[in-house]
Simulated scan of single mutants.
Amino acid sequence: MTTILVTGGTGTLGRHVTERLRTDGHEVRVLSRRAQPYAVDLRAGGAGLDAALAGVRTVVHCASSPRGGDEKAAGHLIEAARRAGVRHLVQISIVGVDRVPLGYYRSKLAVERQIERSGLDWTILRATQFHDLLVTLFQQLGRPPVMLLPAGVCDQPVEVTEVADRLAELALAAPAGRVPDMGGPEVRTLDSLARAYLGATGRRRAIAHLPLLGRTYRAFRDGGHLTPEQAVGKGTFEDYLARRFGRPTSR
């Protein structure tokens, strides 16, 4: 039986990866800042990280924060993984980190480069945004009477459990380097996604489209964060909304 460590194992993605691996009969250690017995802040490193990695063959690295610190956390994880003799490091990343000049994306790309140079055997999967991130965005944008959306932008949301299944599959396979991206089943305008959200939540909001400036907006408008050729996901945004809010939605 393989012992696998999942960093960020209590988070949006990591908890599903953990559940999938345990269901398949594998011993899984969950590492997060508060989950005992492996409560470790990766940004700080420390002896707790060495203890968490003792005897581990595979690490699935899901821990991440848009507030910063990912590169430092990855550095500590890589150093400890080398000391522990880890044989496979699996990293989740984001489609477009090499095309969209957003600060968080740049950090994720830097982590990819750290892993590639780590001397460890590795696998990296890039996925599009999860459905729940769009809901969070629309909740924020929907507070005023008029929902302002960036003009001309599309998205390709993917079901988090499908990404978790793919990560678990990769963790149990041989290191594969950079594997094909994973995108949701549809490339949709933000307008259509926002209207689906409003319908599912019973909210009434006017929608306006706001042109923005800058390289980051231009990259999103040009689809740098999309992977239409890898639209392998099955669950649609409407499927997610119906499950979360308990009312049917229509296109």
Rank of each mutant, 00 (worst) to 15 (best):
S93I: 10
S93A: 13
V95F: 07
G96H: 07
G96T: 12
D98H: 14
L102Y: 00
L102F: 02
L102M: 11
Y104T: 07
S107R: 10
L109S: 03
A110L: 12
A110H: 12
E112I: 06
Q114L: 15
I115E: 01
E116Q: 13
R117A: 15
S118L: 07
D121N: 10
W122H: 15
I124C: 11
L125N: 12
L125H: 10
T128D: 01
D132H: 14
D132W: 06
L134E: 00
L134I: 02
V135I: 12
V135A: 13
Q140S: 12
Q140C: 02
L141Y: 08
L141R: 14
P145H: 07
L149R: 09
A151W: 12
C154N: 13
D155C: 10
P157V: 03
E159P: 01
E159D: 15
V160A: 13
V163A: 08
A164H: 05
A164C: 07
L167Y: 06
A168C: 03
A168T: 02
A168D: 00
A168Q: 00
E169R: 12
E169Y: 03
E169Q: 14
L170C: 04
L172A: 10
A173Y: 08
A174M: 03
P175I: 10
P175K: 09
A176K: 09
V179R: 05
D181W: 05
D181M: 14
M182H: 14
G184C: 03
P185G: 11
V187M: 11
V187G: 13
L193D: 00
L193E: 00
Y197C: 04
L198G: 13
G199F: 03
